[in-house]
């Protein structure tokens, strides 16, 4: 898994996650995002265009970050889900509890 800070716009940190979010790699997502939250970032657009795979461990990592940001008055939105990743979000009901947009541009318009 790669997690990359691709820039800041409208006070949102735009983050791209690539590869796999599984039981092994997800702690790295939580730690990296946690580090950015510690630095004072509380609004995130997480672009999943490059994410090929996510398991319940990956969802757990995202939910942990969502809850932490909620407590700090922040927010995470997700963009560009596809394939199995999109299906996993639908089956789990996560599509209804986390805002999801078609593209980073769409997300920026709403932020």
């Amino acid at each position: 898994m790669n997690i990359i800070n691709t820039g800041k716009e409208k006070d949102c940190l735009i983050v791209s996650v690539e590869g796999r979010m599984d039981a092994v790699s997800t702690p790295e997502f939580e730690q990296t995002l946690g580090g950015w939250i510690d630095e004072g970032n509380i609004r995130f657009i997480v672009d999943l265009a490059g994410l090929d795979y996510i398991s319940s461990a990956g969802l757990r990592g995202i939910l942990t970050s969502v809850k932490r940001l909620k407590a700090e008055g922040g927010q995470i939105v997700l963009t560009t889900l596809h394939g199995t990743v999109k299906e996993v979000f639908e089956i789990s009901g996560f599509s209804t509890i986390i805002p999801i947009f078609e593209s980073v541009e769409d997300a920026l318009q709403e932020m």
Partner: peptide
């Protein structure tokens, strides 16, 4: 229960749901 608000959402059991689906 995949319809609850995320603040109460328990993540346990999601993996089992994926297996069944």
């Amino acid at each position: 229960d995949v319809t609850t608000d995320f603040s109460e959402r328990e993540i346990g059991g999601l993996g089992v749901l994926f297996v069944k689906e």
